[in-house]
Simulated scan of single mutants.
Amino acid sequence: RPYWFHIEYLKSPKTVHLEAWLVEAIFGRGAEYIPHVECVSQTLLHVNQWDPEGEAEIFIFGRPDYQKDVSKMIMNLADYHRQLRAQRTELDQLEEFIQRAGLGPQQNLHPVA
């Protein structure tokens, strides 16, 4: 365990629940960014993800004020990734509408010489 982590921090982790797809969006494929987050925030993270389409549970171990900061960071990143997904969905729907309506790029019938 890291030198800054004390055993008593294991007694009361802060828990964050969010959609499972957000774990990869926030922490990278295979949770590759968790060690960096732990090092910078001086917390330890444990992710329980039962179903990729369901919910994930993240336990944050560390000093209470650090737990709070990391929890806020995770929730802010989750909101950001939800907004990105919603924007992509809207753009996909618009693109599909344009294709169905036959409103693709218009050719100029009178080219300028």
Score class of each variant (00 low, 15 high):
residue 10 L to C: 01
residue 12 S to N: 15
residue 84 L to W: 09
residue 50 W to H: 13
residue 7 I to M: 15
residue 1 R to M: 06
residue 1 R to L: 02
residue 50 W to T: 03
residue 94 L to Y: 11
residue 96 E to Q: 08
residue 66 Y to P: 01
residue 94 L to P: 00
residue 104 G to V: 03
residue 86 A to H: 13
residue 23 V to A: 05
residue 36 H to Y: 02
residue 81 H to S: 08
residue 77 L to H: 09
residue 50 W to A: 07
residue 95 E to S: 00
residue 62 G to P: 06
residue 41 S to A: 13
residue 2 P to Q: 06
residue 98 I to S: 01
residue 5 F to N: 13
residue 8 E to S: 07
residue 66 Y to H: 15
residue 51 D to Y: 05
residue 60 I to Q: 03
residue 9 Y to C: 07
residue 45 L to T: 04
residue 103 L to M: 14
residue 64 P to L: 08
residue 14 K to P: 00
residue 73 M to S: 04
residue 89 T to Y: 11
residue 24 E to N: 09
residue 93 Q to F: 03
residue 32 E to Y: 12
residue 53 E to R: 00
residue 28 G to D: 15
residue 36 H to G: 08
residue 109 L to P: 15
residue 109 L to W: 05
residue 41 S to R: 06
residue 75 M to L: 15
residue 31 A to D: 12
residue 17 H to I: 02
residue 90 E to R: 07
residue 7 I to R: 14
residue 112 V to Y: 01
residue 59 F to H: 12
residue 40 V to C: 11
residue 51 D to R: 02
residue 98 I to V: 14
residue 58 I to M: 11
residue 79 D to C: 07
residue 55 E to S: 09
residue 15 T to G: 00
residue 35 P to N: 13
residue 48 N to I: 15
residue 41 S to E: 13
residue 77 L to S: 04
residue 84 L to H: 13
residue 93 Q to R: 14
residue 13 P to N: 02
residue 65 D to K: 08
residue 63 R to Q: 14
residue 20 A to D: 03
residue 43 T to S: 04
residue 8 E to L: 03
residue 45 L to F: 03
residue 111 P to N: 10
residue 96 E to P: 00
residue 1 R to S: 11
residue 26 I to L: 05
residue 85 R to G: 03
residue 90 E to S: 10
residue 33 Y to C: 08
residue 19 E to L: 00
residue 15 T to E: 11
residue 35 P to I: 08
residue 40 V to H: 06
residue 59 F to L: 10
residue 40 V to F: 09
residue 102 G to C: 04
residue 37 V to R: 00
residue 73 M to C: 03
residue 21 W to K: 00
residue 11 K to V: 00
residue 63 R to A: 15
residue 65 D to F: 04
residue 110 H to W: 14
residue 53 E to Y: 00
residue 24 E to F: 00
residue 92 D to H: 11
residue 79 D to Q: 13
residue 51 D to A: 02
residue 37 V to F: 15
residue 89 T to S: 10
residue 47 V to T: 07
residue 45 L to C: 10
residue 85 R to L: 13
residue 30 G to D: 02
residue 31 A to W: 01
residue 17 H to N: 11
residue 90 E to M: 04
residue 67 Q to N: 03
residue 31 A to L: 11
residue 71 S to I: 00
residue 97 F to E: 12
residue 57 E to N: 08
residue 99 Q to N: 11
residue 92 D to W: 12
residue 24 E to G: 09
residue 20 A to R: 02
residue 3 Y to M: 14
residue 50 W to Y: 07
residue 34 I to V: 15
residue 73 M to W: 10
residue 106 Q to I: 02
residue 55 E to F: 06
residue 71 S to D: 11
residue 1 R to T: 05
residue 61 F to Q: 03
residue 59 F to K: 10
residue 15 T to R: 09
residue 21 W to C: 01
residue 81 H to M: 12
residue 73 M to A: 07
residue 52 P to Q: 10
residue 83 Q to S: 06
residue 36 H to A: 12
residue 3 Y to T: 10
residue 57 E to K: 01
residue 57 E to C: 08
residue 44 L to G: 01
residue 108 N to G: 00
residue 59 F to C: 08
residue 63 R to T: 02
residue 48 N to Q: 13
residue 93 Q to T: 07
residue 82 R to T: 05
residue 46 H to D: 06
residue 15 T to D: 02
residue 46 H to N: 10
residue 66 Y to V: 05
residue 108 N to D: 15
residue 10 L to V: 03
residue 29 R to K: 15
residue 27 F to G: 12
residue 23 V to K: 05
residue 33 Y to V: 01
residue 86 A to P: 02
residue 60 I to W: 05
residue 15 T to C: 12
residue 103 L to F: 03
residue 98 I to D: 07
